[in-house]
Amino acid sequence: MAKVKYYYDPDTLSYRKIKVRKRDKFKNTIIGLLSVLLTAFFGFIVFSQFLTSPKERTQKRELENLKLHYELLSKRLQESSEILADLQERDNYIYRTYFEANPIPEEQRKAGFGGVNRYKNLEGFDNSGMIKNVTKNLDILSKQMVVQSKSLDEIVELAKEKEKMLASIPAIQPVKNEDLKRMASGFGMRLHPILKSWRMHNGMDFTSPTGTPIFASGNGEVTIATRSSTFGNVVYIDHGYGYETIYAHMSKIVAKKRQKVKRGDLIGYVGNTGRSAAPHLHYEVHKNKRPLNPIYYYYGDLTPEEFLAMQKASQQLGQSYD
């Protein structure tokens, strides 16, 4: 039932019923409907900002997941770069220093790619910057790993060569200590026992009974195994790396010319052949065709005490045995 409305009429001093015309009633109805529609429309627009479709929610989750994985991947890339940097530093300042090799220049390790834009195909997407950044970091890391891998291959070869060199350098006495009578003459000016004149003695003389075994002091190849007027039965061994050793006055030669020998291999026996005053081994060490004092090449089997005793004996001036 519609609510009846009244108004006060001052002329008649009484209340009268308000009569609404049909036109006004229709107008009021239209205005009310429009108000409701407008309120509903604007309310929907505002509320829709807080509503997402299932597809939009899925895309949002995927984007958040992508960002999370990007952060994790960036962190792993950073950790890998730090590990690689540490390896590069060891490579340059430890491994290469030990093997006497030049370090890899920083420009070579950090060199860019240059040329055209390598990442042009990654442009035009919502997350192009993020994708280009991680792709570029991966490319840089991959290139540095290739450089480092090649360097480690080179280090392995240097290690093999170093091992070969260390095995080749003369490093032991050619006659065992227990077989020696004494170290008769050292490196330097000595009185020749036969010519009776002071001459440069380019090696060391070890007195030992005839037939005492003589051993190669390092790996190498026998270049001479013959008899000469001065050295008698003599063997020359080329050790490579500029090193050569000479074993003279043997009673018998065991090694053959062009034979490959290793440190400690039997090459002959002590004797008194050639220009010699008594049974002994005359032993020389040469580096780049220059004779060196052999006493500095016995580090392979002499204790510090034995080395000092031999050094003292070798410095005694006197007569050599050849």
Rank of each mutant, 00 (worst) to 15 (best):
M189Q: 14
M189S: 09
M189D: 10
M189V: 15
M189Y: 11
M189F: 10
M189G: 06
M189L: 13
R190L: 05
R190V: 12
R190Y: 08
L191G: 01
L191Y: 03
H192D: 13
H192K: 08
P193S: 12
P193I: 09
I194Q: 12
I194Y: 12
L195M: 11
L195A: 11
S197T: 14
W198T: 13
W198M: 14
R199V: 12
R199H: 07
M200Q: 13
H201I: 07
H201W: 09
N202K: 09
G203T: 02
M204E: 07
D205A: 06
D205T: 12
T207W: 02
T207H: 02
T207Q: 11
T207S: 13
T207C: 11
T207M: 07
S208I: 10
P209L: 08
P209K: 11
T210M: 12
T210L: 02
G211K: 05
T212Y: 06
P213D: 06
I214P: 00
I214S: 00
I214R: 01
F215D: 04
F215T: 09
F215A: 07
A216Q: 04
A216H: 03
A216T: 03
A216Y: 02
A216G: 10
S217E: 03
S217F: 05
G218L: 05
N219A: 13
N219L: 00
N219G: 09
N219K: 14
N219V: 00
G220V: 14
G220L: 10
T223C: 08
T223D: 09
I224M: 08
I224G: 02
I224W: 01
I224C: 05
I224N: 01
I224H: 07
I224A: 08
I224F: 08
A225M: 01
A225Y: 00
T226G: 00
T226E: 15
R227E: 15
R227Y: 15
S228T: 15
S228Q: 12
S228K: 14
S229L: 15
T230V: 14
F231Y: 15
F231S: 07
F231M: 14
F231E: 05
G232F: 02
G232D: 06
